[in-house]
Amino acid sequence: MTDNGILRIIARFLIPFIMLFGLYIQFHGEYSPGGGFQAGIVVAAGWILFALIYGLKAGLEVIPEKAMYWLAAAGALIYALTGVASVLLGGRYLDFYAFEAFFNTPQAAQQFGIITVEFGVGLTVATVVMLIYTFFVRRKSEWDEVMRGSDAE
């Protein structure tokens, strides 16, 4: 598939749009269907498309496996630590009204909280999907390598 020129060209155009769409879902989630999870999947889908066409190796050059792993943890921690922050500010866990001090209205504080945690969700989902995809697809090539190696033995 990596040799198919037409696909490459289409992908080159398509992938930015997919990413844009993902970001739109991510940050427009309060107004229309969508949110962190869907955005994460879409962004990951963009990357997967890239990896399908340019090869997994190229995909991993864009974002290395280690980075995915850490970002996945980071996303979950962003979510959790937002809650901790609200406790430190004197509220209950995940009580976004606690951020009111930084904003004009309580609603704004809530929206800030929602956007932050949704970002955490999106980050984790996107990286986890990429990570799982990486492992499953790479398994095949690793396996082929082993088979070849043992045949040569």
Binding site: G29, Q107, Q110
Partner: peptide, 13 residues
């Protein structure tokens, strides 16, 4: 919370 998407509001808050 001034969020029109109720699903997002329930989900995230």
């Amino acid at each position: 919370m001034g969020v029109p998407n109720m699903v997002a509001a329930v989900l995230a808050s």
